[in-house]
Computed example of a mutant assay.
Amino acid sequence: MALSYRARKRLSLLILLVGMPLYIVVAVNLVGLIDRPPIWLELVIYVALGVVWAIPFRAVFKGVGQADPDAQTKTEGQGPSA
Rank of each mutant, 00 (worst) to 15 (best):
G79I: 10
R36H: 11
E42S: 07
L30T: 09
K62V: 03
D70T: 13
Y23R: 01
G32P: 01
T73R: 15
V31P: 02
G77V: 08
L17I: 08
G19R: 05
A71H: 12
E76N: 10
P80D: 14
R36G: 03
A27K: 07
F57I: 00
P37H: 02
L16T: 05
M20K: 04
S12M: 12
L33Q: 14
Y23K: 01
N29G: 02
S4N: 10
K62A: 15
G79E: 12
V64E: 10
G50H: 10
S12K: 01
N29Q: 11
Y23V: 00
I39L: 14
V60C: 10
G19C: 04
V47D: 02
V26Q: 04
L30M: 12
S4F: 11
L49P: 08
A48Y: 07
F57H: 09
K9M: 01
T73N: 09
R10E: 13
Y46W: 05
A71G: 09
Q78W: 06
E76L: 06
G65P: 00
Y5K: 01
L13I: 06
A54Q: 09
L14Y: 12
L11E: 11
I24Q: 07
D35E: 11
G63W: 05
K62M: 07
L43A: 09
L3G: 03
L30W: 15
V44A: 15
Q72W: 02
P37Q: 06
D68A: 13
R8S: 04
E76F: 08
G63V: 02
T75I: 09
D68C: 10
S4P: 10
P56M: 12
T73F: 10
V18N: 04
V28Y: 15
M1E: 12
L49I: 08
K74P: 00
M20V: 06
V64G: 10
I34Q: 00
D35A: 09
S12D: 06
V28G: 04
K62H: 13
W40F: 13
L43Q: 09
N29A: 12
R8I: 07
K9S: 15
V44W: 14
L3R: 03
V64S: 05
Y23I: 00
G19M: 06
P21M: 08
V47E: 02
Q66K: 14
F61Q: 05
R36A: 08
G65D: 11
A7Q: 13
A59N: 09
T73E: 14
I15W: 04
Y23H: 04
V44R: 11
P80N: 12
K74H: 11
D68M: 08
W40N: 00
L3D: 06
P56C: 13
I45M: 15
